[in-house]
């Protein structure tokens, strides 16, 4: 028996919005420790890694490990049926071929039950090596989304260069070029507005804008985003999901042909 309850269904809605650009279907691996999802996009350029800890749920029970393959378009249709203030409970029996979603309004005046058929998906788990990143940038997630959107107008790719002075985002194409520099913030009132750079060595990497823009669909989940970079390895873009967990995106760089 698996059961996971979240008072704020809005979090699950946002998680879904954050992954459905990159993935059409995915397996949710449920265990005693929580729910995990790891999947690559079709082109094998990016990877989504979602971790929702069991202790972050308002109720959580998972007697046996369970892998639930879901079509994310169909899951989105069902999650759209939940009111913003509703509580959501996901339930499945052991070895079930369906997952149940129950939405309850405040005071349980309205209770809606939906069942979705599960799919058998080929699981392609990747081992992600432990990496000591040369640069870790923490910045406001909305600022990052804005930069990705703005620079996408100039070219398909953007370079991210990090030194201890700051981080520079640049793009160039037919219409011209764009450069955005962000300095580390000296002192800010709100922690979430800060730009913080931890640098061991300067790094400059180039990435496809299309994927970065897809990652920024996670912006509503967190006020801050963390970019981890080392020369010639995939970028990690991480959004914390409150006390519940995190979503990490890995993106392979574009390299000199």
């Amino acid at each position: 028996m698996f059961e996971a309850r979240l008072v704020q269904s809005a979090i699950l809605k946002k998680v879904l919005e954050a992954i459905k650009d990159l993935l059409t279907e995915a397996t949710f691996d449920c265990s005693d420790s929580g729910i995990q999802l790891q999947a690559m996009d079709n082109a094998h350029v990016s990877l989504v890694s979602l971790n929702l800890r069991s202790d972050g749920f308002d109720k959580y029970r998972c007697d046996r490990n369970l892998s639930m393959g879901m079509n994310l378009g169909n899951m989105t249709k069902i999650m759209k049926c939940a009111g913003a203030e509703d509580t959501v409970t996901m339930k499945a029996q052991d070895n079930a071929d369906v997952v149940a979603f129950m939405f309850e309004s405040k005071n349980q005046e309205k209770v809606s039950d939906y069942e979705m058929k599960l799919m058998n998906l080929d699981q392609e788990h990747l081992g992600i090596p432990e990496t000591d990143y040369s640069c870790i940038v923490k910045m406001p997630s909305q600022e990052f989304a804005r930069i990705c959107r703005d620079l996408s107008q100039f070219g398909e790719s953007m370079a991210i260069s990090c030194t201890k002075e700051g981080v520079k985002f640049s793009s160039a194409g037919d219409i011209g070029s764009a450069n955005i520099k962000l300095a580390q913030t000296a002192n800010v009132d709100a922690e979430e507005e800060a730009v913080v750079i931890e640098m061991q060595e300067p790094v400059s990497l180039t990435f496809a804008c299309r994927y970065l823009n897809s990652f920024t669909k996670a912006t509503p989940l967190s006020a801050q985003v963390q970019l981890s970079m080392s020369a010639d390895v995939p970028l990690v873009v991480e959004y914390k999901i409150g006390e519940l967990g995190h979503i990490r995106y890995y993106l392979a760089p574009k390299i000199e042909d």
Partner: peptide, 14 residues
């Protein structure tokens, strides 16, 4: 010219 590489160049299937 830069080319996009696959994530599979970095991460191994487990």
């Amino acid at each position: 010219k830069r080319k996009q590489v696959s994530l599979l160049n970095f991460f191994k299937k487990s």
